Simulated assay, not measured.
Amino acid sequence: MIKISHVQQTPIYSFKPVVDKNIPDKNKVNTQIATVAISEESHNKYIQSLKFKETNKDDVLGQQFKEFYEEYHSAEAIEKRRLERLEKEQANNRLVDEFPDNTLHHVIKEALEGKVINASLYAKELASTIRSSVSMPDKSVEERAAYREMGLKQAEYIAEHYFDDELEAASFMNEINKYYENDVLREKGYVVFDNSDLEPLKSYSSRMSNDDDISFYTLAKRYMDKDYFERFIKGEGTPKESARFLMEIKNNKEKYREEIIEELELNEQQVEKQITATKSIFDSFVWENGLVTETMEEQPTYLVEILKWNKDMLNLLN
């Protein structure tokens, strides 16, 4: 298998890390480490080891294999995994008091310092609801949508009653809405980087392919044997196993493509329907001073917890 490592000869591909302000200085990707180089010699050796019966100078399977490593080991992918790990750590640690600059946690804390009893706690809780797809992976789509809507209502109440400057309040809500919209996209199955110039893309694609192209990484992760996949990404697989999988992809790629795209489109439709239904529930509530004073006769059981969360948050306000 190709080993992804530093090479002396001229590489055919190299990547510089995407620096994201969400990561504190001490956690930024080291350029020397994150740069990935795949040499022509290493690639050729791998292709030769597969020993395909048919030969083609424009070998599609070899290109797919190369694309997999480019995608998985690219600086952008490394940065994404680091961000996801950091986000999960923050989401699970309620004692965190310092947040990286330009994260939603930081924006809320800075805006509400002095306006609430505990700005750090308030920021942590509000940011978690606005980004519920990240912070609440074990909850259902409906529950995450409800928390997201309640977080938005809480932010709107804050903007209306706790900012003396209208421009400051508008700036605050612009940030909240940006993160809210990004989270809805994540829920629908898109890859989104907050606070970056990178456009969202469908989760089955990659920035190295056209929007509707299924990345080789997606195909491998979904259809490759789980145990072999772990060895494959570490470069510990065998040419025979790789050749068998690559031929399987070649023979079934169109079928796999249709399955993956259909699944994402169906998920997107269902999420949109669930979010719309949740909005309707919130629109039916009677609100007074940020609290829900009257609800529908029949409502989801999880709303009891969310209504309590909203009340507890309001109690933090000075």
Rank of each mutant, 00 (worst) to 15 (best):
I275T: 08
N182M: 13
I275P: 03
Y162M: 06
E272N: 10
E254V: 07
R144I: 02
D58T: 12
S132K: 00
K188W: 13
K57G: 10
T301P: 05
E272C: 04
E160Q: 10
K311C: 11
L61I: 02
L83W: 07
P100C: 01
E236Y: 04
K240L: 14
A91L: 05
K80F: 13
I38A: 05
V19P: 07
F282P: 01
L185W: 12
T55A: 08
G235Y: 01
V107F: 07
L219A: 03
G237K: 00
I233H: 08
F68A: 00
D225Q: 02
P137Q: 01
G235M: 06
E230M: 11
K308F: 13
K240E: 14
E40P: 14
Y228R: 04
E41C: 09
R222V: 14
D183A: 00
E230P: 03
E41G: 09
Q32Y: 15
D164W: 08
L266W: 08
D197M: 14
I306G: 02
G114E: 03
I261P: 03
S133P: 06
E79S: 10
L201W: 15
Q274W: 09
W309T: 03
F245A: 01
N252F: 02
E84P: 03
V36I: 14
P11I: 12
F232D: 02
K308L: 13
L317K: 10
R244N: 11
D194W: 05
V141L: 09
L316D: 13
S140F: 05
V286H: 08
D58S: 14
R186E: 15
E113Q: 05
S135E: 05
R85C: 15
L201P: 07
Y256P: 00
P200V: 07
R148L: 11
E70G: 02
I249V: 10
M224N: 01
I108N: 04
I117S: 14
V29M: 15
R144W: 08
Q63M: 12
R222N: 13
N22S: 15
E41P: 09
V96I: 12
K308D: 08
V116M: 06
D197G: 12
W309G: 01
S133G: 04
Q8A: 10
R231K: 14
S196A: 12
S39K: 05
F245R: 01
L198M: 10
R244G: 05
N102Q: 11
N318C: 06
F172S: 00
S215N: 04
E125Y: 15
N310Q: 15
